[in-house]
Design a protein around this nucleic acid. Structure first.
Lengths: 176, 176
DNA sequence: AGTTTCTAGTTGCAACTCGAAACCTATTTA
DNA sequence: TAAATAGGTTTCGAGTTGCAACTAGAAACT
């Protein structure tokens, strides 16, 4: 009488390769519409009907995504005081912290997909000058590419306190 | 005899909000498994069966994703010379250029999802010190948050050549 | 030469997710 | 009180995912 195991479809990405937190990040943000909703939030949209109109997403899917984003702590939901029909969705600190990722993805799209620099341009409010391309920086500010990176065990990390040679190379990231 | 318009399901995200290249970037990279395949590529995996084993993805989905990534110019496909059964998938420059985005997402996951710093750690090969957190930098290197950013028309961009005040504020990005 | 194994797929099927439209409930507003 | 608005939920057809089985071409073994 052994029940056939109900096939577990859509296994969470997080279970694959526990060493890396990328799969966990993708669990919520990897879904269709998640980044578009995030972008709309950064642009000052807060209400269900606003997202609906701006994104052209189906109501049920929007409802589902907002719930998931709230569950993940990326948005928080609060009833409006002045109009109790309305609910406000606002970015949490966790959500706000996705801005560099979102801009990196946008810049990549700008460079490789659309080709032309988008208009309007994202600038530093203080001096009205365009922000730098998002890049990988060494502790001293040098820009790094995949050629310059490798993974080492946390125990072999050079904190700058000592300066001797270590032996714990694990793997280069680049293979091109 | 007017044919009812065949419902266009899964309208490309790119058609929404043409001003921004984020939707275009998400067209390929927003799909489930795309970033995981990218990460595996950065880790030196090049062959179908390697991806299959590493990711635990279904064969047909992997086949589909690899095809899409090749079509988008993120991977390139080349038959192996030493073993003509094999096909090599390698990152193109366009694919390699997604590294900052991927690391930004990974760092976000590390901070907000897994909590603990991942091990092994990504370091600058030169001095074995951990890379900086990916962040948004002004032209002079100051770290910017969403409070500091706004969008302006490209015509009102301050290039540094002139230094007078401009009037073309379009929209602040932050609303918290 | 003939069989087996390996690589990279394709096909078929069941479960699941998406999208569009209709429906529901609690507030405002006219 | 009737109508409009805000934020959902339900229903259903179509598309996508996941698994297993099958296929085709190339290499390895006997």
């Amino acid at each position: 009488m052994t029940q056939p195991t109900p096939a577990k479809l859509r296994e969470p990405l997080a279970e694959i390769a526990a060493c890396c937190s990328l799969p966990q990040a993708l669990e919520t943000m990897g879904e269709r519409w998640s980044f578009m909703i995030l972008r709309a939030s950064f642009n000052g949209l807060h209400h269900f009907e606003e997202f609906l109109e701006e994104l052209g997403i189906a109501r049920n899917i929007l409802s589902n995504r907002l719930t998931r984003l709230v569950e993940s702590g990326i948005l928080k939901r609060a009833p409006c005081i002045d109009d109790r029909r309305k609910i406000e969705y606002r970015l949490t600190d966790k959500g706000l912290d996705l801005l560099p990722t979102m801009i990196a993805l946008r810049q990549w799209g700008e460079k490789w997909e659309s080709g032309v620099p988008s208009n309007p341009v994202l600038v530093d409010e203080r001096d009205r000058r365009a922000i730098q391309p998002i890049s990988i920086l060494a502790h001293d500010g040098r820009v790094l590419t995949h050629h310059d990176l490798c993974w080492i065990d946390i125990a072999d990390l050079n904190t700058g306190a000592v300066d001797d040679d270590h032996e714990g190379v694990v793997k280069r990231i680049a293979t091109i």
